[in-house]
């Protein structure tokens, strides 16, 4: 996973498999960068993800709580159709300040 920042947009390029085990590391890294940079937009880019279970949904929901508090937009990008379907089971597509790209 790599994290980049550009003009107030913090992007976490997630890679590999996301499960309960790997999500813990991703969560810590994204949260540390989020606190450090206070972005106006946080992008979770799933295009490098090869497998995801509902831990990926938990990762997004957990970050949403933080972005909402900071009036920051959460962008979920690069999701496969399958993973997008799983993400939508949580109702995230109806939440304010969440965008699917």
């Amino acid at each position: 996973m790599t994290i980049t920042q550009d003009n107030g947009v913090l992007t976490a390029h997630l890679t590999g498999e996301i499960d309960h085990h790997s999500a813990a590391f991703m969560r810590s890294a994204v949260d540390a960068a989020f606190v450090r940079t206070s972005p106006k937009e946080l992008v979770l880019d799933f295009s490098g993800v090869t497998f995801m279970d509902s831990s990926g949904v938990g990762l997004a929901l957990g970050r949403y709580k933080k972005t909402r508090e900071q009036n920051c937009t959460l962008v979920l990008a690069g999701l496969s159709e399958r993973d997008k379907r799983m993400m939508k089971l949580s109702g995230m597509q109806k939440m304010e300040m969440v965008e699917f790209r």
Partner: peptide, 13 residues
């Protein structure tokens, strides 16, 4: 907060 509560829903899907 970090669990989505979707485990069984995903299994059923």
């Amino acid at each position: 907060n970090e669990r989505s509560g979707l485990g069984f829903t995903v299994m059923e899907s």
